[in-house]
Design a protein around this nucleic acid. Structure first.
Length: 173
DNA sequence: CACGCTACGACCA
DNA sequence: TGGTCGTAGCGTG
């Protein structure tokens, strides 16, 4: 597995009422989504050797990303997502993220429940780590994973974002 | 490189 | 307060 730096990804801005997000694409799909004013990104390892999507493919994916993001920011289901590039991430992380994709707007789970659902009931703290490593926040709804007792827990993009996203989905803490 | 070891959490009871 | 476990970072051969 080769390591590829982040600038081999193609970056596209997405203007929203909440600021400008940045989507980054590899040859196999959407690899990252950055919050507005996100700090310098730490590139994960990727296996796709710096290949880039064709411009046609890119525009199709980006259209899906933009629509999905705007829906999600409004508290609605994102609809169809572009393919996600999870290369360079671990099986464990992917299991956690796949489980998060099953959550509908307004539907929350605790870290412990997530651990149980992926068949690793004791890997509770590790689930927290996987949530924090989610490269595509909002669309992969890590904000719907709360601490036990419906406490807010943490959030890589800042707790204000987590609160805001949940509020738009009608979640009361 | 490939391990081995350690420290560290977006936790939970 | 301590059990638990996936990761990252670092040191060795």
């Amino acid at each position: 597995m080769k390591t590829v730096s982040a600038h081999s990804l193609i970056a596209r801005p997405i203007a929203t009422a909440d600021g400008e997000f940045i989507a980054r694409y590899s040859a196999t799909g959407l690899a990252e989504l950055d919050f507005p004013n996100a700090k310098a990104f730490v590139a994960p390892k990727r296996s796709e050797g710096g290949r880039r999507p064709s411009s046609v493919t890119l525009s199709v994916w980006h259209r899906l990303t933009v629509a999905a993001l705007k829906s999600a920011l409004a508290g609605r289901a994102p609809g169809q997502l572009p393919p996600l590039d999870w290369s360079g991430t671990t099986e464990f992380q992917q299991a956690v993220w796949r489980e998060m994709l099953k959550l509908k707007p307004g539907q929350t789970r605790s870290y412990g429940e997530m651990a149980r659902l992926i068949g690793r009931p004791k890997a509770v703290r590790a689930v927290g780590g996987a949530c924090g490593a989610n490269p595509v926040p909002v669309l992969v709804p890590c904000h719907r994973v709360l601490a036990a007792g419906r406490q807010l827990g943490g959030f890589g993009g800042g707790l204000a974002w987590k609160r805001r996203l949940l509020a738009r989905e009608g979640v009361v803490l």
